[in-house]
Write a protein that binds this DNA or RNA. Structure first.
Length: 486
DNA sequence: TGCTATGATTATAA
DNA sequence: TTATAATCATAGCA
């Protein structure tokens, strides 16, 4: 709202107030004073040269003065000035003035007194609180960083989010600046206008009864008018903040799918901890780190701990809702887990053989990249051969690389059902091999294949304990933490 | 363009 | 505080 509108509003109020005063004066001139009994019990002091008994003469005097006052506005400026001067010098003027002031106070204030002590506007309070909470009003603490931080924390702000966060803060700071500039303008205008009106009233008080209290009241009216304008400013500012916030949230809502590798890692963990798919904070961090590394190589973004939590939350609920749908996926990952564990075990066997002086290790020369197979059948055959010792010689990748190389086994041609059957036989073979390796007797256990055993009859997960580590079966002996070990 | 998958958000309960 | 359940909104695919 512009200053001119504000002035217009204030002028309207002023005019209304002046009308009131005129009406009061009319009533005073026409009724109250005419009968010499002034309301409120205030009697006129005896004018100079009168003994106080000449009632008709005094009435005439007062009537004359009032008439002159009332008609002063109808006269030309010069005429009015002359009249004004004459009135000011009239012998009864001070007495009349004080009486009129008192009457005005008693009538005007009694009517308006109650209105002046308005309770604080709840809407204004709401607006103030909101502006304070958003960091727009009050002392500057980073321009609503608290709100932004809270919003960002909810989404696990990092990477792209931090950019949006700073953008949000910058825009909020802009709003804050505009708000304060406007507020200052309004305050300045309010002060100017108040001074102007006060001067005007003081000037007018020479010719009409205006008491200091009335001036105060007028100032109060002006301030209220201006604060209503301020409320509009606050409302607009709040709206702007709300819009900014919603846009910020919309931006955060924009999602991007995780990379395939990241999803694989998360699924790997989920299905290997099917009886208790609740990663600990450390596990989440480790998973996030693992996924970040994988993703940053491909996409350039990172996955945060919160996103890992979101992922597991979504996964749990969706898995529970539709176990059948996830069966194939579960088989796939169970197979993968089994194969990875087998790799680890085989590596251990290899190491033990290599370390044994009676078992010479020769001919393990095949590189990881050479472990490329086209069909599930050949994979399984090779796996069988690998661990039964009939495949000839090739080296096994170390446990760290093993997982990546194993991912190639999850190609589209690698059907879950088939995997289920094939891998079970592999597992049996592996168990035999592994049983010969000290320390890994129960690395695979009996639950390698997927079954919806993770859920109990109540729909809850069987094992309530949170795994202490994220270490997956692909990482060797740590696989004892996995579901497959249960 | 419609459908499904999926990451994010919100309300609620424990 | 964390998990769940419902929901939203968008990506990706046929």
């Amino acid at each position: 709202m512009s200053f001119s509108i504000c002035v217009a509003q204030c002028t309207d109020s002023l005019a209304a107030t002046m009308d009131d005063q005129a009406r009061i004066m009319q009533s005073i001139g026409g009724v109250s004073l005419a009968g010499h009994s002034v309301q409120g019990g205030m009697a006129l002091p005896p004018p100079h040269g009168h003994d106080g008994t000449d009632g008709d003469g005094r009435k005439q005097d007062i009537g004359d003065i009032l008439h002159q006052i009332m008609t002063i506005t109808d006269q030309s400026l010069d005429e009015a000035q002359a009249k004004k001067h004459g009135l000011n010098c009239h012998r009864m003027k001070p007495a009349l003035f004080s009486v009129l002031c008192e009457i005005k106070e008693k009538t005007g204030l009694s009517i308006r007194g109650a209105q002046e002590e308005d309770p604080p506007d709840p809407q204004l309070m709401r607006l103030d609180n909101m502006l304070l909470a958003e960091g727009v009003a009050g002392p500057e603490k980073g321009g609503g960083s608290a709100a932004a931080a809270a919003a960002a924390a909810a989404s696990g702000a990092a990477g792209d989010n931090s950019i949006e966060h700073s953008d949000y803060r910058a825009k909020l700071t802009q709003i804050r600046q505009i708000y304060h500039t406007e507020l200052e303008k309004y305050e300045q205008a309010c002060n100017e206008f108040t001074t102007h009106v006060m001067n005007l009233l003081r000037e007018q008080s020479r010719t009409r009864p205006i008491s200091p209290k009335e001036i105060e009241r007028m100032v109060g009216i002006i301030h209220r008018k201006f604060s209503s304008i301020q409320m509009q400013l606050k409302q607009s500012t709040c709206e702007a903040v709300m819009i900014l916030r919603s846009r910020f949230l919309d931006a955060r809502r924009k999602r991007r799918n995780f990379s395939k590798q990241a999803t694989e890692i998360l699924n790997e963990y989920f299905y290997s901890h099917l009886s208790n798919p609740y990663p600990s904070e450390e596990a989440k961090e480790e998973l996030a780190k693992k996924c970040s590394i994988t993703v940053s190589q491909g996409v350039g973004s990172t996955i945060t701990v919160s996103q890992v939590s979101n992922w597991f939350g979504n996964k749990r609920i969706r898995y529970k809702k539709n176990i059948g749908k996830f069966q194939e996926e579960a088989n796939l990952y169970a197979a993968k887990t089994a194969v990875n564990a087998a790799h680890a075990a085989a590596a251990a066997v290899q190491n033990s053989q290599a370390n044994s002086p009676t078992t010479p290790n020769s001919g393990f020369q095949m590189k990881d990249e050479e472990f490329q197979l086209d069909s599930a059948e050949s994979k399984n055959t090779l796996l069988t051969n690998m661990f039964t010792g009939s495949s000839g010689s090739f080296n096994l990748p170390n446990s760290g690389d093993m997982f990546l190389s194993m991912q190639s086994l999850n190609g589209d041609s690698y059907q879950g059902a088939q995997v289920g059957a094939n891998v079970q036989s592999q597992v049996d073979t592996l168990r035999h091999v592994i049983s010969q390796t000290a320390g890994y007797n129960d690395a695979l256990g009996g639950n390698t294949m997927y079954s919806p055993h993770g859920l109990n009859a109540n729909g809850g997960w069987q094992d309530a304990t949170t795994p202490s580590s994220v270490i997956s079966p692909t990482e060797g002996p740590g696989s004892v933490h996995s579901d497959t070990s249960n």
